[in-house]
Simulated scan of single mutants.
Amino acid sequence: MLQYKVFNYTFKNLKEKNMTFEQVFDHILHFIRRDPSGNFKLMIGTDSQVHKNHTTFITGIVIQNEGKGVWACLRKVRITDKITNLHQKISYETSLSEDVFSMFNQERKDAMYEIVLPHVDHGASFTIEGHIDIGGGIRNKTSMFINEMVARIESLGAEPKIKPEAFVASSYANRYTK
């Protein structure tokens, strides 16, 4: 299996470009503080697209307050290879998501939890999900990788989601791989 080094640790969205992870995390904290009694989901997922001479990977970070809005950004990685091996491509997508998950160390997770925790008795919640661009079903070519990729996301302490629930990977990130 080929190994790729990723040096691009900048993020962007429709309003801002070249955000550091610290800036992204500050946006997430600000979003949660606006309504700390909300039902929050931090979701991370990656999708890719093979082009003529390269493969583009997009990792999305989405913080959602259910029914009350989202804040999102993405990170783009371009590999100068056409990755046509499906397992290799899905595995690398998961690796890029794992890479972003690792930026949310325990101190950062605690900072998010501490905002929401005083409001749990009033219905507030906070979950972390890993969205994997794979689907179940006999006809889905990626279904044979479900157990492996789900286990990788679970090992990060996140709740794995596959299609159709994996919308950060299959919709948000997918939109920017083209």
Rank of each mutant, 00 (worst) to 15 (best):
M1N: 06
Q3D: 11
K5C: 05
K5M: 07
F7K: 07
F7Y: 14
N8W: 00
N8T: 04
T10K: 14
K12T: 02
L14H: 08
L14C: 00
L14D: 15
T20I: 01
F21Y: 12
F21H: 08
F21E: 06
E22N: 14
Q23R: 09
V24F: 12
F25L: 05
D26W: 01
I28L: 15
L29E: 15
F31V: 05
F31L: 07
R34F: 00
D35G: 00
S37V: 02
N39D: 10
F40L: 06
L42W: 11
M43W: 00
M43V: 01
Q49P: 00
Q49G: 01
V50T: 15
H51A: 09
N53C: 00
H54V: 00
T55I: 03
T56E: 09
I58A: 03
V62Q: 13
V62W: 10
V62G: 01
I63R: 07
N65E: 11
G67C: 12
G67A: 09
G67L: 08
A72K: 15
A72S: 14
L74M: 11
L74T: 09
R75D: 01
K76N: 08
I79K: 07
I79S: 12
T80M: 11
D81H: 14
K82E: 14
I83M: 08
N85Y: 11
N85H: 13
L86I: 11
L86R: 10
H87E: 13
K89W: 03
T94A: 14
L96M: 04
V100E: 14
F101N: 02
F101G: 01
F101K: 07
S102K: 14
M103I: 01
M103R: 13
N105M: 00
Q106D: 14
R108D: 03
R108C: 02
D110T: 11
A111M: 07
M112G: 02
Y113E: 10
I115Y: 09
L117F: 10
P118Q: 12
H119T: 00
H119F: 15
H119Q: 12
D121A: 10
G123R: 06
A124N: 06
F126R: 02
E129D: 04
G130A: 13
H131R: 05
H131P: 04
I134M: 10
G136P: 02
G136T: 09
G137R: 07
R139D: 11
T142A: 11
M144I: 13
I146R: 08
E148K: 15
M149T: 09
M149R: 07
V150R: 12
V150F: 03
R152Q: 12
I153D: 06
I153S: 01
E154T: 09
E154C: 06
L156E: 10
G157T: 05
G157V: 06
E159K: 12
I162Q: 05
K163C: 00
K163P: 03
E165V: 00
A166D: 02
A166P: 08
F167D: 04
V168P: 02
V168M: 05
A169H: 07
S170K: 06
S170Q: 03
T177K: 04
K178M: 05
K178S: 07
